[in-house]
Write a protein that binds this DNA or RNA. Structure first.
Length: 277
DNA sequence: CCGAACCTGTGT
DNA sequence: ACACAGGTTCGG
């Protein structure tokens, strides 16, 4: 589900609410997607003080004051949502985190629920050294990099389709299926184009559009195409601004041509056959 | 490189 | 019944 704008939105909300707090207790409702497993996980997180909560690629990073961290990947349907004391447990809830210092008077939000319908997501406790490795294994952060640096990442392998390259987190971090399609439309490039066929201008234009679309989506709190909600349970508002994603059969907002849908790397891929060459 | 796998839910 | 869903990893 969430890509960079959605994960960033959640990271900021969690950071604002939880920075400086201590994880008082954790209730594991369903085991199997946490590391270490079961009671070891509970033992590893309880009592940890949160220094700050950040994002790298599509990973949420809960930095603890002792240098260790909890990584959380939401994959397709993962959620972190603040709930009040009257919250009724849902079928797909995996854990509830309770934080010290949070009172009912604090806008009534006392607990954070981690849920995940499809169970692809995970949380993992890592030591400082492993955290360094994880941070280094991804490509550059698009919102913190110059367009030229991103453009340079899109040179090779020459035979790779540009859409596939955009989905590879080692090339550029945080771009997923929605924003790959949207950036390619804005840059007027077919998703099937091979990297080797892109001119210097093409790559720079694409890099700029990647930055632009991610920035605009972030301002709208991300895109709720299916299940996505932020930590307050609210949907993202960028859906209304999408130009191709999920618009198969509808008219291109630029030229009126019918939006096509093809499959690249087992992912639905949307584009305008007239605007995108 | 491609397809399958991990899962559940929803829409046609 | 079948296609499809914001992701990633693994095997062939």
């Amino acid at each position: 589900m969430p890509e960079l704008p959605e994960v960033e939105t959640i990271a900021k909300q969690l950071d604002k609410k939880l920075r400086g707090r201590t994880i008082k207790s954790v209730e594991l409702l369903q085991t199997g997607r946490e590391t270490p497993q079961g009671s070891k996980f509970v033992k590893a997180v309880e009592g940890k003080k949160i220094e700050r909560i950040t994002r790298r690629a599509k990973l949420l990073i809960w930095n603890f004051t002792d240098g260790s961290a909890m990584l959380a990947h939401l994959k397709m349907t993962g959620r972190f949502v603040f709930v009040d004391k009257d919250y009724q447990l849902g079928k797909h809830d995996r854990a509830i985190f309770i934080f010290s210092g949070l009172r009912i008077a604090d806008s009534g939000l006392v607990r954070l629920v981690w849920s995940d319908v499809r169970k692809f997501g995970f949380v993992k406790i890592v030591k400082p050294a492993e955290l360094v490795d994880v941070m280094a294994c991804y490509g550059p952060e698009p919102l913190e990099s110059q367009a030229q640096e991103l453009a340079d990442r899109l040179k090779s392998p020459k035979t790779r389709m540009v859409k596939a390259a955009l989905l590879n987190q080692e090339v550029i971090a945080g771009v997923g299926n929605i924003y790959a399609d949207e950036a390619l439309h804005r840059a007027k490039l077919r998703p099937t184009r091979r990297l080797g066929t892109l001119s210097i201008e093409d790559r720079l234009r694409l890099a700029k559009e990647i930055k632009r679309v991610l920035c605009e989506a972030l301002k709208q709190g991300g895109t709720s195409a299916n299940d996505y909600v932020d930590a307050s349970g609210a949907k993202g508002k960028f859906l209304d601004f999408l130009r191709v994603y999920g618009r198969k059969g509808e008219r291109c907002r630029e030229c009126g041509t019918e939006i096509k849908r093809i499959t690249i790397g087992q992912r639905g891929t949307h584009y305008c056959p007239k605007c995108q060459i």
